[in-house]
Amino acid sequence: MNLPPKTRMLLRHETVLLAVLVAEFLFFGVAGRNFGTPDNLANIVRHSVEIGLLALVMMPVVLAGGIDLSVGSTLGLCAVLFGKLWRDGGLHWEVAAVATLGIGATAGGVNALLITTLRLPPLIVTLGTYSLFRGLAEAITHGTDAFTRFPPTFLFLGTGRIAGIPAQAWIFVSVAVAMWLLVHRTTFGRSWRAIGFAPEGARYAGLPVGRRLAFAHVLAGTVAALAAITYTARFGTAKADAGTGYELAAITAVVLGGTSIFGGIGSVHGTLLGVAAIAVLGNGLSRVPATMSNAGELSGLLTGVLLVLALAGGAVPKWFVDRRSRKDPAPVLP
């Protein structure tokens, strides 16, 4: 098939990322202690589900040319409210979980409303709700209260296995498949892409720009609530600081995965590779004796290096393409 150059470039980006991931596996498999054991692999998955979920829904927002800095705080707020509904509201945890998804959707809806009706920049709006939602979570718990002693059926979501695979991995895979279909196989994805490339152009084409952006933010809020549930089930406790800094981790994974921060370009599978590359790197470093003691700092540092290399790798061919296409219509100076 005759692929357009942009798609070909994208493929290349994802191929590079896959190679990085394979290299990580090979390196840590040799240098790491107990890196390749089933238990450790399950561990990697468990630890990356929440950030992975946030990245999956951050991706459409970024694809449409926006950003959502509030997802980590939404996670914290939802975790606390879930605990509150279950412990103080006396609800079954299943009911509380469904209600929590509604709360997450509402939080996303607040962002959507401010962005689409007041036409405020997403960066400003979500920077505001980033503080707002976290503040609410802290107010509800007075900063110190923590919800614990959840029932075992609930904790199973965070610690149990289904068919030998961590329970929350099933949730993650379902969301990933759904997001892939949404972005790559429906008019929603097509519209997000168009809006990301040219918001005005999309409006002139009669696309429902406001509704599409709103949907992306509501989706982000809802899945952040889902991440709050798996997070709480994993730790067995819900506190106001749940998911602190996760929004940046999610954005990093999305950008590393090849989604353009300016919108329009990107893929869900790229995002998944981005999540995996970061998660494996962090875990692997903690398994290598030489780096074990400061794995946290090193993985942050190396993630940064990876990000810059991945972006530079994408920018160099693009620069050549731009230079060639710029020659074409109106040369200003020789």
Partner: peptide, 8 residues
């Protein structure tokens, strides 16, 4: 800017 989305 408005007629065609050039990247698509």
């Amino acid at each position: 800017r408005h007629g065609v989305i050039l990247e698509m």
